[in-house]
Amino acid sequence: MQGSSRAAAAASRDALTGALAGGADRSRLAEELFAVVGLLDGSTALRRAVADTSREGSDKVALADRLFAGKVGDETLAVLRGVFGQRWTSERDLTDTLETYAVESVIAQAEGEGRADRVEDELFRFERIVASDAGLRSALTDAQASGERRLALVESLLGDKVAPEALGLVRQAVRAPRGLRFDRTIVRYLDIASRRREQQTATVTSAVPLTDEDRARLAAGLATVYGGTVHINTVVDPRVMGGVKVEIGDELIDGTVIRKLDAARRAMGA
Rank of each mutant, 00 (worst) to 15 (best):
R188D: 09
A216I: 06
G112D: 14
A145W: 08
R171N: 08
A131T: 00
V204K: 04
R195C: 05
R115W: 12
R197S: 10
A166N: 01
P209R: 13
A134M: 00
D191W: 01
G179A: 05
S194N: 13
D133K: 10
E113Y: 05
T201R: 15
Q144M: 12
F182S: 03
D212S: 12
T211E: 07
F126I: 13
V170L: 07
A163M: 07
A176G: 03
V162I: 06
D183K: 05
Q199D: 02
L157W: 10
P164H: 04
V208E: 15
A173S: 14
L153I: 11
G114Y: 06
E148I: 04
Q109Y: 04
R115G: 11
V170Q: 03
F124Q: 06
A110K: 03
S138D: 15
E155I: 06
A207P: 15
A116W: 03
E198M: 11
E111P: 08
L167W: 00
S156Q: 12
D133L: 13
L222W: 12
E111A: 12
L140Y: 03
A163R: 12
L151R: 13
P177S: 08
L180M: 13
L158C: 05
L123H: 02
A207V: 14
I192K: 09
V106D: 12
L210M: 13
G221Y: 01
L123R: 06
V154R: 00
R118W: 01
L190R: 14
R178N: 13
A219Q: 07
L153S: 08
R118I: 07
I192E: 09
R175F: 13
D214P: 06
A193W: 03
D142R: 07
L222C: 09
Q199A: 12
R118L: 12
A220G: 10
